[in-house]
Design a protein around this nucleic acid. Structure first.
Lengths: 251, 251
DNA sequence: CGGCCCTTTGATTTGAGTCAATCGTGGTGG
DNA sequence: CCACCACGATTGACTCAAATCAAAGGGCCG
């Protein structure tokens, strides 16, 4: 069903599979809050939901759920970053998007009544609450405002995903590389002036997969950019030298 | 904003811009019915909606709306087939999907509050009702069941689109061709035994864009399949001869 | 009959993947 | 302290699917 590499390695112990309960109110990150999507819930609904939730922690690379498996629940991400990817025929990963704290995961499959369309894999230690399928559906059915917000959210994400996939279909590796470099560079807050950008995957392979290419091709692309003085690849770290040229390449 | 070729040609008169009202019950195709998504509406809502609707006919190749323009309305498709496509950097079309009678168009952009993500272009003479943005949003806000059905529908379409785009990223033209042939063949109800399949775009170029390739490559692929006795390309119409082989190729 | 499209066929190009060899670097143990 | 190893990064050579460019073929309709 899923590639061996992605399956939980039997030998590796799971740390903190069941989240120990924390102090109930002083660490908001560990409890769902009502900002964002959940803001539409009434007090009663929120209370009901909380009682049905099962908060867990997840280790990096141990997915919350797997593409192709029955969608038994939605997940409310409370802490950490999760990468959503689809498996290629050769078992390779195609990253569809990233999600962060406050995001709701897996609800699309739940609403469609289909298996999960992606695998949701934490990039770092992550905490998420499980919302069982029926609980979630009841919530949507009974709360029009919640449904409305969900619609807005799903519509935006759908457009966003479509953009990302279209880019992979029609843009050259060079252009996609430039785009990612720009995107990842800016997203790290105060830009990439401090030489090593913490947001860029350290390994070439990870960056390559994010762009949707191979390490070899990425290497060539990066060095081509470096030889034009657009990047600086001095050991450990990619630094953008000529931001304007990079923007031009990204279109 | 959009390519000149796709913009409405100013000189061509629109036939039947305002749909004349027909006998109220004997031609259901020309009036919105309450099957499908609209089934969730109450009598009152349905009446209100009908009074707000503006039914129009559209000529082939004259889009209902254009990618990148403000999403002013959703459209209820009543007759005809509409192709949804995104523009490539070179102005080329990338077909995202097809929609038929009963489908709701453009609601994703309306819900997201963004410009349309695609261009909706009729493949044949088409009739559709315009649902102004605010009317639509009010409907969704006030009718939880409608919102719920919309969520289900959007979730399914989103997964479907993602599948289609992923397939374009990682499958060969041969495989994609086989898949489309299968898909379009079965979707036309009582299969493709009557020689010409009405659902297949009659022009090679449209089919090619749907598969995500060029007419030249599609022609080669089709004839390769024909020479293996899998297809019959006798003039006017593609007929599937060896369904099993086609399934095998589609994976 | 003669255009006009659309389709097909042929020849060539090309971007990127694959396979394979080499290079660097940092960690390890002798 | 240094040789050596392991692993990732780089470079090179080759392959390949599909796009592109270019040139015929058909049909169909006025």
């Amino acid at each position: 069903m899923w590639p061996a590499a992605a399956r939980p390695a039997p030998g590796v112990p799971l740390q903190g599979v069941a989240m120990p309960s924390r102090s109930p109110s002083h660490d908001p990150l560990d409890l769902p809050d009502r900002s964002g999507l959940l803001g539409a819930l009434s007090d009663r609904e929120f209370a009901t939901l909380k009682s049905a939730l099962l908060a867990r922690s997840y280790e990096p690379e141990r997915p919350l759920y797997y593409e192709g498996t029955p969608s038994l629940a939605a997940y409310l991400l409370q802490r950490g970053t999760v990468k959503l990817w689809r498996m290629g025929h050769a078992g390779d990963q195609h990253v569809i998007g990233l999600r962060g704290p406050g995001d709701l995961l897996g609800y699309r499959a739940v609403m469609a009544g289909s298996p999960y369309g992606v695998t949701a894999e934490p990039l770092e230690p992550t905490i998420a609450s499980t919302i069982p399928r029926e609980t979630f559906l009841a919530l949507v059915r009974e709360n029009g405002q919640f449904a409305f917000r969900l619609l807005e959210s799903m519509a935006r994400q759908s457009l966003d995903t479509e953009d990302r996939l279209m880019s992979r279909i029609q843009d050259s590796v060079l252009r996609r590389t430039a785009t990612i470099l720009l995107h990842l560079g800016s997203q790290s807050g105060r830009a990439s002036r401090p030489p090593p950008n913490p947001c860029l995957p350290r390994k070439r392979e990870d960056l390559a997969r994010l762009i949707g290419t191979t390490p070899e091709t990425l290497s060539r692309t990066l060095h081509a950019l470096a030889s034009q003085g657009i990047l600086d690849l001095s050991n450990k770290g990619i630094r953008v030298v000529d931001l304007d040229s990079l923007r031009r390449l990204a279109g």
